[in-house]
Each structure stands twice: as structure tokens, then as C-alpha cells.
Amino acid sequence: MGEADLSLAPLSDPFVPELYRTVRVTRELRDTVTLELAPLSGKRPAFEPGQFNMLYAFGVGESAISISGDPAEEGTFVHTVRNVGAVSKALSALEAGAAAGLRGPFGTSWPVEGAEGSDVVIVAGGLGLAPLRPAIYHILANRDRYGRVSILYGCRNPGDILYRHELEQWRQRLDVDLTVTVDHADASWHGNAGVVPSLIKRTAFDPHDTVAMVCGPEIMMRYSMNALRGAGVSEKRIYLSMERNMKCAIGLCGHCQFGPEFVCKDGPVVPYSKVARIFALREI
């Protein structure tokens, strides 16, 4: 009542963005860029693979964007943004030197430590590779801590393949099994064709000792869950990253609810066992 403690006001308000400057822009695809953002003052906060930030474009608004950079590197936040609407368009238009607002990092992370000692299967669809890239960097940098490592990546068209140069580097490694597939092959494509969940049964891993990390369109994740469970991987060891409308990212606006979960704070990365009850239902 009358005597609650007012002295708890924090130094920074979780609703208020910090100022960042764009230090590098890389065009990835026709509609997708990677931004490197450095704080105007102070150190870039630490983050874990799978977490996201709220990026603010002046006057337009905020969007939840996953961190796609290497957690071992300091100094900047790396984000890969696809232009699909007002905010993402303004973010994609940022040029080197331009200012942006940023709040974060928020949310849960991929179990890169929990997966140590086990086989790892990473399943990505389209832009879903962006939030998985920090986990891949971490796992490859600490390769000896893991069993077999497989990366399965699917895109709609060959022109949608993200981080092509890096994929080629990873493919050259003898300690990683990387497979890329496209839904619609064209004359220029000589690789696999077909949807990414279909690669799962062709992949070598020990189902009883595997951690799977899955991110992509919801339908692709649904099929991937089925394929992984079909292969015998426990629901507790299959992780996925959820996407829901987000306004606050701090558990206060209600927008990101998925059943009892607030995707912004209980997710975005969740073990499938936590959401299996409702994942297959429509319009949750």
C-alpha cells in the first residue's frame, strides 16, 4: 500500500532502447541484409546463442531480431534482417554510420552446453539459420566437446540460401556433416532437392544421445519434430525456436503468448516436450 519501496528504480529501463551505430552492412540476399551494430557508449552486453534483441528504427518502430553473430567475438551485435514490412524495411535500409536503437539481449538460448558429449543435429529452414548461426559458431569452435555434428539446411529456392560462403567453408570440414537442400531446384542447382525434414532420416546420429536444434517456418518445424521423434530422439532433447508477435520482449505486453508460455521470456528456444501438447494445434 502506501509504503511500497520507491527506491528500486533501476539504472536502465527495460522499455527504453540504447543507442547503437551501424558499423557494417552486408547484403546477403535480394531482401536480406546483415547488420553489425556497435553501442554508442559502454560495452556490448554478453549474449547466448539463440537470444534476440529488439531493434528500433527511428520513427518506425521496434522488431524482434535474433542475434546471428559469433558469441565469442566482442564489440558488436550481428543481426540478419529480412525486409518483410515497415520496421524490417527501415532496418534493412540502414547504412554504415546510421543510428539504431537496441534493447536486449532477451530470451532463452540453444543448449550448447547441455549438448556437450552428445551428437548434435541442427535443422534450419530459410532465415531460421540466422538464430542458429551463433550456436554453430560455438559448437565448431569447441568441436572436440561434441559427438557427431550435422547441419541440415533447407531453402525454398537456391537464391534464398543464406551465408553461402560460410556454408561452403563448413562443408569443407571433415568433422561436420552439412547438407543443403532446396524445395524448388532450378537449372543452376546441382545439390539436393526436397524439404529439409526429409534429410533427417538420412543423417547419422545416435537417437538416444542426440540434441536437436530446429528453427524455421512453423510447418517445417512440425515435420522436423515428427521426423526426429520418429527417429527416436526424446522430446526433451529436441529444441525449437518459436516466433510470435512481440511488442515488449519483457513479459509485459501479452502478445507473444503460446499457451502458458510467453515466447519472449520462456522462449524463444524451448524443448519440444514443453510445447508438444499444443504445438500441433492450429491458431494457438
Partner: peptide, 12 residues
């Protein structure tokens, strides 16, 4: 994990 400070202040 995060508090709405404006609410907390008004409430107090």
C-alpha cells in the same frame, strides 16, 4: 524478471 517501473511507482 522485468518490472514495469511506471506501474510500480504509481501503485506505491
Amino acid at each position: 524478471p522485468y518490472r514495469d517501473e511506471a506501474y510500480a511507482t504509481r501503485r506505491a
